[in-house]
């Protein structure tokens, strides 16, 4: 067990940011905390990084208690906060040197760990960190979080403000780090990034809705689900919401997703209904739920009992 969180709670005045949250992360796992802003993700990171004391509950990281053993803990973890927190007016090279120094580490000893990312930064090694693009800042922040060879890496919304090419490279990098045995806890508000994790916890308003593999989450989705489109999507969504009292329809990219909880409406009946309402160019196909569909269902109907 690399991270163990048991009934952790934290309030800020009257606001309960984290409510008795428990989960465990295995060694060498990429574990995702998936949820919107305000779900409590950053509070959890700060508690696990020993930067914030929990009100209740216990947490251990790499065998160390986050409250009792905070000094030893800080040498074993790397933390990349959601907000860019390197020194904007130090150069790329100076930032890396500074963080190595703070931990009493030498860049050359641990260079193998960051080489794949740092080679992309080397042409800009004299540039001030503040003048880097979003993708480059993210890569430098990752290098600085890794330079003391931590056992556990905390990444709070690393994808924010980064384009898809850089984001893909970043995730490829995380998989290589996992291969070297580092445990990674990563958060995102984007449901489609869940698929890149080994296991995820869906979190909302300080509570965990479900913990599973991405595939397990979507496989547990219980309702018949269809992807639908027609030439008039605006009217289609409205019409489908009237299909049956419990039918739900929401925009989902170029299609709309139609949930029919009772399962009482076979495709033929739906097609007939849409035809009667004058829709043209209709396409209707049963689809596998995505993590986002599962999240929506969990928000509406509460925790699954599987």
């Amino acid at each position: 067990m690399s991270i163990s969180v048991q009934n952790i709670s934290k309030s800020y005045g009257p606001v309960q940011a984290v409510k008795a949250v428990s989960f465990e992360v295995l060694e060498g796992e990429i574990f995702g905390l998936i949820g919107p802003d305000g779900a409590g993700k950053t509070t959890l990171f700060r508690i696990l990084a020993s930067l914030l004391l929990p009100d209740a509950g216990q947490a251990r990281v790499d065998g160390l208690d986050v409250v009792q053993d905070y000094k030893a803990l800080r040498r074993r973890i790397g933390y990349m906060p959601g907000r860019f927190s390197l020194y904007q007016d130090l150069s790329v090279e100076e930032n890396l040197g500074f963080f190595a120094n703070v931990f009493g580490a030498h860049i050359r000893d641990n260079y193998d760990l960051i080489r794949d990312i740092y080679v992309q930064l080397e042409p800009f090694s004299d540039r001030r960190a503040g003048a880097l693009s979003g993708g480059m800042k993210q890569k430098l922040a990752l290098c600085c979080a890794l330079i003391h060879r931590p056992r556990v890496l905390f990444l709070d919304e690393p994808g924010t403000g980064v384009d898809p090419v850089s984001r893909k490279e970043f995730w490829d990098m995380l998989r290589r780090l996992r291969a070297s045995g580092i445990t990674i806890l990563v958060s995102t508000a984007y449901m489609d990034e869940a698929a890149l994790c080994d296991r995820v916890a869906l979190i909302q308003k300080g509570e965990i809705l479900a913990i599973d593999t991405p595939r397990g989450l979507t496989a547990a989705y219980r309702h018949p689900l269809f992807a639908v489109r027609s030439d008039d999507m605006y009217r289609l969504i409205r019409d489908l919401r009237d299909l049956t009292p419990d039918a739900d329809c929401y925009a989902f990219g170029e299609y709309a997703h139609l949930v029919v909880p009772g399962g009482g409406s076979p495709s033929a009946a739906i097609l007939q209904y849409l035809e009667a309402r004058g829709h043209t160019g209709v396409e209707l196909l049963p689809v596998q739920a995505t993590v986002e569909d599962s999240f929506i269902d969990l928000m509406k109907n509460g925790v699954w009992t599987t």
Binding site: P36, A251, I296, M299, K300
Partner: peptide, 21 residues
């Protein structure tokens, strides 16, 4: 729609499509 929960996100797309309409 970055950073919002999936339900709020859908409500927001409803607003966007409504404005477009």
């Amino acid at each position: 729609t970055s950073g919002v929960d999936p339900l709020t996100r859908r409500q927001f797309w409803d607003l966007i499509y409504e404005a477009a309409h």
